[in-house]
């Protein structure tokens, strides 16, 4: 769009961005940590059946009581636990690295001064963050399914409603769960990317994202603010547990999906506005 005479083909740019992100040790460590969590959860539930209960919110407890001897329920529990804090934080970490991290190391200055379309730059960065977020959720889900079947047994899923789903259908439910969780992580990462374009300090992005999630959760707990609740992104996170009900209720999942899409559009729009007006 600007004056660049020869533009690098987009697929090559996207590939190189992904390779660049995946080569960073902190990316690999984060993915490894996400893979270990389901294994620990699976083993500890197999050893001590009641280790998961107590002091948590109702949705998590409801799923936790179903996990014992019901391995296909482990991905639901693990992702339900992770979507409330861990996965959004990891998504924000990558979003923080993408712009603010580059700015901190001075790399962004060159990119902004070079005759490169800033829209394209943001698109490549957003693609990298989104792909890695998806990868994180998929890694967790795949390891959970394996850990569940190996440590807890049962290739069929006994749903919260008391019905038994065959393995293929249970896998379908896990796939739906992955989509639902990924969209929520993308929404947080999009907002984090917008913050990331406004600062030179990646830590600010992480702090803002953590603070935002905590504030949203607290606001969601206050009954007198119930008019505000439908606006909060965190409100739809419990609904991902609906994949363990039978017949599948789509209301909560659809609403969560639409809400996340709104945050996604807002986040990317603000990021776009900031990156084109930013001084080099």
């Amino acid at each position: 769009m600007t004056t660049a005479p020869v533009r690098a083909p987009l697929p090559r740019l996207l590939r190189s961005e992904l390779r660049f992100m995946l080569r960073r040790p902190r990316t690999l460590i984060a993915l490894l940590a996400l893979a270990i969590m389901p294994v620990i959860a699976g083993v500890s539930i197999a050893i001590a059946a009641d280790s998961m209960g107590g002091g948590r919110n109702a949705a998590i407890e409801g799923i936790a009581s179903m996990v014992e001897g019901n391995g296909m329920m482990l991905p639901v529990l693990v992702l339900l636990l992770a979507v409330t804090m861990l996965l959004p934080l990891i998504g924000s970490m990558w979003a923080a690295d993408a712009i603010a991290g580059e700015a901190a190391t001075g790399g962004l200055r060159n990119l902004l001064l070079a005759p490169v379309s800033r829209v394209r730059l943001l698109a490549v960065k957003a693609f990298g963050v989104a792909t890695l977020s998806l990868l994180a959720v998929v890694v967790m889900a795949v390891v959970s399914v394996l850990a569940g079947v190996v440590f807890l047994g049962g290739a069929e899923m006994v749903t919260v409603s008391g019905t038994t789903l065959p393995f293929t259908e249970a896998l379908g439910r896990v796939a739906l769960l992955v989509v639902a969780v990924t969209v929520q992580v993308w929404a947080v990462a999009a907002v984090a990317l917008a913050i990331s374009t406004c600062t030179d300090h990646p830590l600010v992005v992480l702090a803002a994202a953590t603070g935002g999630i905590i504030i949203f959760t607290v606001l969601g707990e206050i009954p007198s603010l119930d008019w505000l609740h439908p606006l909060l992104l965190t409100e739809s996170w419990e609904a991902v547990a609906d994949v363990a009900r039978d017949p599948l209720p789509m209301n909560g999942l659809t609403e969560g999906f639409l809400r996340a899409a709104c945050y996604l559009v807002i986040g990317y729009s603000l990021a776009l506005a900031r990156i084109v007006t930013r001084d080099g």
Partner: peptide, 26 residues
């Protein structure tokens, strides 16, 4: 000119997102 276009798109996107949230809440 492109910067203005991008900003207009970004503003429209933000408004659409907020409108969507309000619509979901009503």
């Amino acid at each position: 000119e492109t910067k203005k276009t991008v900003l207009a798109v970004a503003a429209a996107g933000t408004v659409a997102g907020v409108a969507g949230l309000v619509l979901l809440a009503s």
